[in-house]
Simulated scan of single mutants.
Amino acid sequence: MAEQPEVVHAEVGGRRLRLTHLEKVLYPETGWTKAEAVHYYASVAPKLLPHLAGRPASFLRFPEGVQGQRFWAKRVPGGSPGWLSTLEVPHREGAFGQVVVADLPTLVWAANLGALELHVPQWQGDPDHHDRLVIDLDPGPGMTVVECCAVALAAGRLLAADGLTAFAKTSGSKGLHLLVPLHPAPERAAVEYARQLAGQLRAAAPGLVVDRMEKSLRRGRIFVDWSQNTSAKTTVAPYSLRAGERPTVSTPVPWSAVESCRRPADLEFTPEQVLARPEDPMAELTAPRLRGRLPGA
Rank of each mutant, 00 (worst) to 15 (best):
V89S: 08
R92I: 09
K74T: 07
E93D: 15
E64G: 07
L84K: 04
H91Y: 08
G94C: 11
P77K: 02
P81E: 03
F62R: 04
L87F: 08
L87K: 03
F62I: 00
L84Q: 02
Q67K: 14
G78H: 13
R92W: 12
G65N: 02
P90K: 11
F62V: 01
R92V: 13
H91G: 08
L87G: 03
R70K: 13
F62L: 05
F62A: 02
G82H: 11
G65H: 02
R75H: 11
P63Y: 02
A95C: 06
F96C: 03
K74P: 02
P90C: 14
R92N: 13
P77S: 00
F96A: 07
R75F: 05
F96L: 11
F96P: 02
V76I: 04
R75V: 13
P77C: 03
T86M: 07
V76A: 01
V89R: 09
G79H: 08
R92K: 14
R75S: 09
A95E: 13
F96S: 08
G94V: 12
F62T: 00
R70N: 13
G78K: 13
P63N: 01
E88W: 11
S80D: 05
V66F: 00
P63H: 01
R75A: 14
G82R: 13
S80E: 03
G65I: 01
L84I: 09
P81L: 08
Q69L: 15
W83S: 04
S85W: 12
S85E: 15
H91E: 10
S85V: 14
S85C: 10
S85D: 12
W83C: 05
F62P: 00
H91L: 06
P77W: 01
G68N: 04
R61S: 05
V66C: 01
V66Y: 02
R61F: 00
L84N: 03
G78I: 05
E88D: 12
H91F: 14
R75K: 14
R92L: 14
S80N: 07
G78E: 14
G94N: 11
R92P: 11
W72V: 10
G68A: 04
V89H: 04
G79D: 05
L87V: 11
G79L: 05
L87N: 03
P81S: 12
A95L: 12
S85R: 15
P63F: 02
T86V: 15
V89C: 10
V89W: 15
L87E: 07
L84A: 09
P77N: 06
R92S: 15
L87C: 04
P90Q: 12
Q69A: 14
G82N: 11
E88G: 10
G94W: 06
E93V: 14
K74I: 06
W83P: 06
E93A: 15
L84W: 05
G68I: 06
P90F: 14
A73F: 09
V66H: 00
R75C: 02
H91I: 02
L87Q: 13
E93M: 14
E88L: 15
A73N: 10
S85M: 12
P77E: 01
P77T: 00
E88A: 13
L87R: 06
Q67S: 14
G79A: 07
V76N: 05
V76M: 02
P81Q: 12
G78Y: 05
G78W: 10
E93Y: 15
G68E: 06
W72P: 00
E64T: 06
F62K: 01
F71N: 07
V66S: 07
G68P: 04
Q69C: 07
F96I: 05
G82T: 11
